[in-house]
Simulated assay, not measured.
Amino acid sequence: MEKRIFWAGDSTVKQNDYTCFPQTGMGQAFGLFVKRNIRIENYAQNGRSTKSFIGEGRLAAIDKKINKGDFLFIQFGHNDEKPDEERHTDAFGDYQGNLEEFIAVAVKHGAHPVLITPLYRRLFNEDGKTLVDNTHLEYPQAMIQIGEKLSVPVIDLCAKSKELIAEVGIEVSKEWFNHVPAGKYPNFPDGKEDNSHLRYEGAYRFCMIVAEELKQLGGIYKELLLDLDEDNENPELLKD
Rank of each mutant, 00 (worst) to 15 (best):
A166Y: 00
T24L: 00
E193Q: 08
E126T: 10
E81A: 14
I116S: 06
V180C: 06
K174R: 15
C158M: 02
E81W: 00
L238N: 05
L119P: 07
K68T: 15
I209E: 11
A60I: 13
R199Q: 14
Q96G: 08
G147R: 05
S161W: 01
F102G: 05
N79R: 03
P140C: 06
G69N: 14
E86F: 03
F21E: 10
V168P: 04
K14H: 04
E56Q: 12
L137C: 09
G97R: 00
L115V: 08
F71Y: 12
Y204N: 10
K239S: 14
W7M: 05
L217A: 14
P83I: 10
K3F: 05
G202Q: 01
D190Q: 12
I38S: 01
H78T: 14
A8K: 02
E86Y: 03
K51T: 15
K65A: 12
V114H: 05
D231G: 02
N234W: 07
E236G: 05
P189D: 12
K149F: 01
I38A: 02
F76G: 04
G218Y: 02
D80H: 07
G97T: 05
T19V: 08
W7F: 15
K108L: 10
E148Q: 11
G31K: 01
N79G: 14
E236C: 09
Y200T: 15
D231A: 12
A8M: 08
L198P: 13
K68Q: 10
Q45N: 06
G57L: 13
G202A: 04
N134R: 11
K108S: 13
D84R: 03
N134D: 08
V132N: 00
D90P: 00
H197V: 04
N125E: 10
I220C: 14
P181F: 08
G218H: 04
F71L: 00
G93A: 03
K108M: 10
D84P: 08
T19Y: 01
A61E: 15
D133Q: 04
E236V: 10
K160W: 03
N16A: 12
L224Q: 10
H78E: 04
D127P: 04
P235L: 00
H112R: 04
K68M: 01
Y43D: 09
R36F: 00
F71M: 01
K215C: 12
E81K: 07
A203W: 00
P235H: 01
A91C: 08
G219C: 02
A106E: 05
R39E: 10
I38N: 01
I209W: 05
G25T: 15
E100T: 15
F73D: 10
R199K: 13
F6N: 05
D190P: 06
N195R: 03
V105A: 01
Q28A: 03
D17Q: 03
G31M: 00
L228V: 14
L115H: 03
E101D: 07
E138A: 11
I54T: 14
Y139A: 01
A61S: 14
F124G: 02
Q28I: 02
C20R: 04
D194V: 14
C207T: 15
A111F: 05
K68A: 09
A211Q: 12
L99E: 08
